[in-house]
């Protein structure tokens, strides 16, 4: 019997508490979302009453099943507002992720090329802003981007513009906010793969006659693809469902799905539609989510 086996038994007992917790507070709630999304809008009103009684027994449950309908999903598909929201969410996430990759890669690459002792410092420097609250970081940008904010003052002082530019409530502001908030999530996985890469591979490529740009394109970049994948997924998935940034920085004429869901839930108090929107969002994100899980698992469980 190997020592790993000896270890495995008590280690498995450690799983019990977190397992129960996650089933109870992560898995089971999805069943409720699914259930409510299939309910008639009227049933869920008013929102502060229990949606159904767990104590009502088998018959009540059967009755509840009979009452299920896909009306909400039909609404989501037929109403342009929702369709547009999904399309916009995906477009915004795609654009923002591309921007993040283009901005994050050179930074991560620069970090990986620092002398070893400086790399740790650079990593802390990249992580620290991530520790300062998300909301605060968005708010910091509102300060800068508002009508008489710092950015416009600088632009005016430099005579680059003749009158203040409208930044707030535009897509540009939203993209700035998203890139700013998610940059560490892009940089860190990229940096991790780039730092692990043996510099001797780049040397070998240049020894075999590749000028610097070919060294990068033929060796460095392909070898960093796992990091690119992790970074892209780590940014793309949450951005699709993003609420705060578009809400505070973008205009209100076209909403992302996270905003729509929020609106249905808090303003219109239409829980079933909000739940249906959440289910659809989850379905849209299923493929990237599964990809991300595989990546995460491989990364954390390899080499053992």
């Amino acid at each position: 019997m190997s020592s790993r086996r000896i270890f495995a038994r008590p280690a498995r007992f450690a799983a019990i508490a977190p397992y129960v917790w996650m089933v109870l507070f992560f898995l089971v709630p999805f069943a409720f979302v699914l259930k409510i999304s299939l309910s008639q809008t009227a049933i869920a009103q008013p929102p502060y009453e229990p949606v159904f009684a767990l104590t009502a027994g088998w018959d009540a449950l059967k009755a509840a099943f009979a009452a299920l309908s896909i009306e909400n999903f039909k609404l989501l598909v037929s109403d342009d507002i929702y369709v547009f929201a999904y399309v916009r969410s995906l477009t915004v996430a795609l654009t923002a992720t591309t921007l993040l990759l283009l901005i994050g890669y050179p930074i991560a690459y620069g970090m990986a090329r620092l002398p070893k002792s400086w790399q740790a410092v650079a990593m802390v420097l990249v992580i620290v802003p991530f520790w300062t609250s998300f909301l605060i970081r968005i708010y910091a940008w509102i300060n800068i981007l508002q009508h008489d904010g710092l950015l416009n003052q600088i632009l005016l002082a430099l005579h680059l513009v003749s009158q203040p530019v409208v930044w707030l409530s535009t897509d540009s502001a939203m993209y700035i906010g998203i890139v700013y908030s998610y940059l560490p999530f892009m940089i860190l996985p990229l940096y991790a793969t780039l730092a692990k890469m043996e510099p001797v591979l780049e040397e070998a490529a240049s020894d075999l006659g590749a000028p610097p740009w070919q060294v990068f394109w033929l060796v460095t970049f392909p070898l960093s693809l796992p990091g690119v994948g992790a970074g892209v997924l780590l940014c793309f998935i949450p951005i699709v469902g993003e609420f705060v940034i578009p809400d505070l920085l973008a205009g209100s004429n076209s909403l992302m799905i996270g905003q729509t869901l929020w609106l249905e839930f808090f303003t219109n108090k239409d829980w079933p539609v909000a739940s249906a929107a959440a289910i659809v969002l989850l379905v849209v994100l299923l493929v990237p989510l599964l990809l991300y899980e595989r990546l995460q698992k491989r990364q954390l469980e390899q080499g053992r």
């Binding site: 043996e198 040397e203 070998a204 020894d207 075999l208 060796v219």
Partner: peptide, 20 residues
Amino acid sequence: ALPHERPINMMFQNYALFPH
């Protein structure tokens, strides 16, 4: 001269084969 400009090649310690 830069490495890629030299008519000299090297066999690296641990070989530095491109894993991809």
